[in-house]
Design a protein around this nucleic acid. Structure first.
Lengths: 257, 257
DNA sequence: TTTTCATTGCGTTAATATGACACAATGATA
DNA sequence: TATCATTGTGTCATATTAACGCAATGAAAA
């Protein structure tokens, strides 16, 4: 099936499958080798990059739609994924923009549910870079991680959505724990600190960080040190899942210095 | 025009006017005489109470829709009103529930955009109880303030929406100022404290409260004391609007004891 | 007029949290 | 065996917080 046929099919089926006017866009942050990346798709014909997104099935919970999108792009599931903001600027997408996209694809349509105005709900997640199996959707040629400090051109208001998510991630770092399903089962304190530093984009005091994190009780210290490393071997920790999840809801309430 | 005609008209026009599947519900808190109230509408035929809500015009920003609803119910505008959560449970409203509502109203319709599934965006605001001119919408017999501690039966998931808003209001109290367009131009420290205590539903230490609020610089102390009161006359304050708005965005960052 | 007294403004103190830094222990590498 | 970057633990001055004391105020009571 050609792309033209595929997309035409998709557009027709979509009208029956999805709620109109509403989309979901996911800002999926990935952490790997002390870099904070975000998952982007390159549009087959627009050239610019887009957040992984999609629509809500007529009988689907919006959270499930977001999880479905995440799963389809990365193979990951059971990830802490949460809505953070609704973007509803009437001019955020226009009929002309959407038609242009199709024209580039060689498809001519006068009317479609896709040409109508969309309000989008932003979701954000933090995943383990290395565990994700990236798969582009049918509109895209590429599905890649991009460093948040060097982002390519992006479609519509996706840059704004991304910035909002990043700001929110940084703000929430003081109140909500981070790291589960992002770090390996066992990890060291310096590894956890690097994660925080990468998100905040600034250095933290090693000793104060340890004191504060330890104070939250979200960690369990293991009777094991990392092997085969130069210099003093750091201790292994794992998350105390019970307290971790409690902190996810209730907050941890400390300020990072 | 009878209600039956009116509602039939409304339903037909709505299809042209509004985005489908999306609604807005406002949790409008009102403060008056040291009580925290919330604005509710009583459905003409359902009996239960509902949050003031509505739909988004085809070319309207969602924030504008929320402000329009607030304005229509209370006459108030330029109020700090913000989205706080999207409620998208597929079963939160059903065709049967909506049809039943109409049947009660004596209107029989087989199909309507109103019967379709709705995702609703919750907005929250805090207004001056006494400045609001309450006006029910055409679906409602009453538009009244209800104390948050004694709420009546509510339709759909409106109770859950309200609870979410209240929790969020309490949580945000540590980071965002409250009181502007809620207290009179000039107010006393005990009055401001009462507002905080009412929202948090617990007493605060008078002296520590004053020290912390003063520390945020959102207040300007006036050279004037309240007249005609028993006991020592408290000083008047007003908000330093510049710092207040800065704190609205950036946060104040203190914990209330 | 004088006294009473609930309330306000300002201050104190102890406990706790924070930011900045010191130092010994570790263990692969030189 | 010595080196040395890194880790674990601790110290200390300062800031913040929670809890409370006390004199000043001024309408109401005596």
């Amino acid at each position: 099936m050609s792309f033209k046929e595929e997309i035409t099919q998709h557009f027709k089926k979509g009208q029956e499958l999805y709620l109109r006017h509403i989309s979901v866009d996911c800002v999926i942050f990935g952490f790997h080798q002390n870099k904070l990346n975000v998952l982007l798709l390159q549009s087959k014909y627009a050239g610019d990059w887009a957040l992984p997104g999609g629509f809500i099935l007529k009988q689907e919970h919006m959270d499930d739609a977001a999880n479905r999108i995440l799963k389809n792009r990365t193979g990951l599931h059971n990830i802490y994924l949460q809505q953070f903001h609704v973007f509803s600027e009437p001019s955020r997408s226009t009929k002309l923009m959407n038609q242009q996209f199709l024209k580039n694809a060689g498809v001519v349509m006068e009317e479609s549910w896709m040409f109508e105005r969309f309000i989008t709900v932003g979701y954000t997640a933090l995943v383990d870079f290395s565990k994700a199996q990236l798969i582009p959707d049918s509109f895209s040629v590429a599905c890649e991680w991009h460093n948040v400090n060097s982002l390519p051109g992006m479609i519509l208001d996706h840059r704004e959505i991304l910035n909002t998510a990043l700001l929110q991630l940084q703000t929430n770092l003081n109140y909500h724990p981070v790291g589960y399903n992002l770090l390996p089962e066992k990890f060291t304190m310096p590894e956890l600190q690097k994660l925080y530093e990468t998100i905040l984009n600034r250095p933290l005091d090693r000793r104060n960080f340890q004191r504060k994190i330890t104070g939250t009780k979200i960690l369990k210290k293991l009777d094991e040190t990392k092997k085969g490393v130069a210099h003093k071997a750091p201790n292994y920790y794992k998350f105390d899942l019970k307290n971790y999840k409690k902190a996810l809801k209730g907050g941890m309430g400390f300020q990072l210095s």
